[in-house]
Measured scan of single mutants.
Amino acid sequence: LPHTAVCLVCGEAGKEDTVEEEEGKFNLMLMECSICNEIIHPGCLKIKESEGVVNDELPNCWECPKC
């Protein structure tokens, strides 16, 4: 993702460097949905019932829970 990318919900950049544990890092890193192209911190999504499908081949790419 470009350095200028920010979260659609909170308007902040990736914050994964501020935590140690892997789950915390994931919730604070910016992810781009391969379907709707929205860039968001997974932790900013209010959807709890399902998780997005992470694409292991492309960094910061997933199918968000909304899609």
Rank of each mutant, 00 (worst) to 15 (best):
E22F: 00
N55T: 09
L30I: 04
C67P: 00
G52Q: 09
M31T: 04
A13W: 06
V53Y: 02
N37F: 06
C44A: 01
E12N: 04
V6K: 14
L8I: 13
S50F: 12
A5G: 05
D56A: 11
E22Y: 05
N37A: 13
T18K: 08
E51Y: 07
C44L: 00
E63D: 15
D17P: 08
S50A: 12
C10H: 01
E23W: 03
L28P: 08
G52S: 08
K46A: 11
C7P: 02
V54P: 10
E49V: 13
K25F: 02
V19Q: 14
C7T: 03
P59L: 10
L1T: 12
C10T: 06
G24A: 12
V9I: 15
C33L: 01
C44M: 01
S50Q: 09
L8D: 02
C64A: 00
C61H: 15
E20S: 07
C10R: 03
G14K: 06
C61K: 12
I40L: 08
V19I: 08
P2D: 15
K48E: 14
E20I: 02
N37K: 13
L8V: 03
G11D: 02
T18G: 04
K25W: 00
C44Y: 00
H3P: 08
P42L: 05
G14Y: 09
V6Q: 03
I40C: 10
E21H: 15
D17T: 07
C64Y: 01
I35M: 12
W62V: 03
E38Y: 02
P2W: 15
E32Q: 08
E51G: 07
L30F: 01
C64R: 00
T18M: 09
G43Y: 11
M31I: 06
N55C: 07
P42A: 05
M29L: 06
V53I: 10
I35L: 12
N60I: 07
G43H: 04
G11C: 03
C33S: 01
D56Q: 10
G11K: 15
L45F: 05
E20W: 04
D17Q: 09
C10M: 02
F26S: 05
C7V: 01
I40W: 03
S34P: 03
C10Q: 03
A13R: 15
P59Q: 11
C33H: 07
N27V: 03
E57G: 10
E63W: 04
H3K: 15
H3I: 15
E38F: 01
N60Q: 08
E22A: 12
E12I: 04
E32N: 15
C67M: 00
F26M: 13
K66V: 07
E63G: 06
C36D: 03
G14C: 00
G52W: 04
S34M: 07
F26L: 05
L45S: 13
G14V: 08
H41Y: 00
A13K: 14
K66D: 10
C10Y: 02
V54K: 09
G14Q: 11
K48L: 12
S34C: 10
V9Q: 02
I35A: 03
L45M: 12
P42F: 06
I47D: 06
L30S: 03
E63M: 11
W62R: 02
E23I: 01
I40R: 07
I39R: 14
E51D: 12
P59M: 07
I40A: 12
A13E: 15
A13M: 15
I39L: 09
N55P: 06
V19A: 10
S50R: 09
A5V: 02
E23G: 14
L45R: 11
P59K: 13
C44H: 07
D17W: 03
K48R: 08
N55W: 04
C67A: 01
S34Y: 03
K25C: 05
E32S: 12
E57C: 12
H41C: 01
V19W: 04
P65V: 03
G11T: 04
A5L: 11
P2F: 15
W62N: 03
G43V: 05
E16N: 02
P65I: 00
C64P: 01
S34A: 06
I47W: 09
K15L: 08
E12V: 05
I35Y: 03
K48M: 14
N27P: 11
I40H: 13
D56P: 13
C33F: 00
C10E: 05
M31C: 06
E21P: 12
E16S: 07
G43D: 10
E57M: 10
E23D: 11
P42M: 03
A13T: 11
C10P: 03
C44G: 01
E32C: 13
C44W: 01
V6H: 15
G14L: 03
E23M: 09
L58G: 07
C33T: 01
